[in-house]
Design a protein around this nucleic acid. Structure first.
Lengths: 113, 113
DNA sequence: AATGGAGTTGACTAACAACTCAACATTTAT
DNA sequence: ATAAATGTTGAGTTGTTAGTCAACTCCATT
């Protein structure tokens, strides 16, 4: 159904004409690690590494994160320590919100203040 | 500033007149583990274990989760795989929402459909 | 024909998470 | 005072995460 993280990364990297070694150096990992991730031999990198990759390639961070199913630490902390936010998220999950509905909520957020 | 997970658990458990052994058996862990957690010798349990504790003691799940800074797996999956939800959360984090504002959002959610 | 750049692979590892087990100490009830 | 219940502690276990390192292979040039 959904494209793997590896394939997505490989395609994006190639589009930008960056070698595995170049990318690896920019983000501070071994290049062989990039290879394995691109071929889905290893799971997607940690959130912070994924973010570095997105920045290095100049693509929206969320797209990559969501394909890797990874949560940045700051978000995890915010949610994990906030009962009210947790309740909100539980309710949202139960409603199975669509992409557009999430967009709407993000708009509402700005109008909240 | 904020009460530790351990102290909170110890207080709640005592209020309900439950021994460490009883609680441990109900949720399926060794009782010595409960002791260590209550004395903050070990970090708060995994989210799923924390939820079992909350259920066993009859207290709201979110209160305990938020004190342990743990995120249930289903929430993590939902967020981690949804770019639109991630953007929403990022925006919310940037705004430093108060408890009441989160409550408002949860209300709005119901009115969304 | 050999050098260099790019990609792939196997084996290994350090750190952390989430506990268990056995022994001992303390508190409570009889 | 003693037995039973309850609580604490040290040491060890098992699994997962997030990678590294060295050794290849496969091409494209020179």
């Amino acid at each position: 159904m959904k494209e793997t993280f590896g394939k997505l990364l490989k395609d994006l990297r190639r589009e930008k004409n960056v070698s595995q070694r170049e990318l690896a150096e920019k983000i501070g990992v071994d290049f062989s690690y990039i290879s394995k991730v691109e071929n889905d031999r290893l799971p997607p990198p940690a959130a912070e590494t994924t973010i570095k990759i997105a920045r290095a390639l100049g693509i929206p961070v969320e797209e990559l994160l969501s394909h890797g199913n990874k949560l940045p630490l700051d978000l995890k902390d915010m949610l994990g320590s906030n009962a009210a936010a947790l309740k909100f998220m539980n309710a949202a999950r139960d409603m199975q919100l669509s992409k557009d509905e999430w967009g709407l909520l993000t708009e509402n957020l700005k109008r909240l203040r």
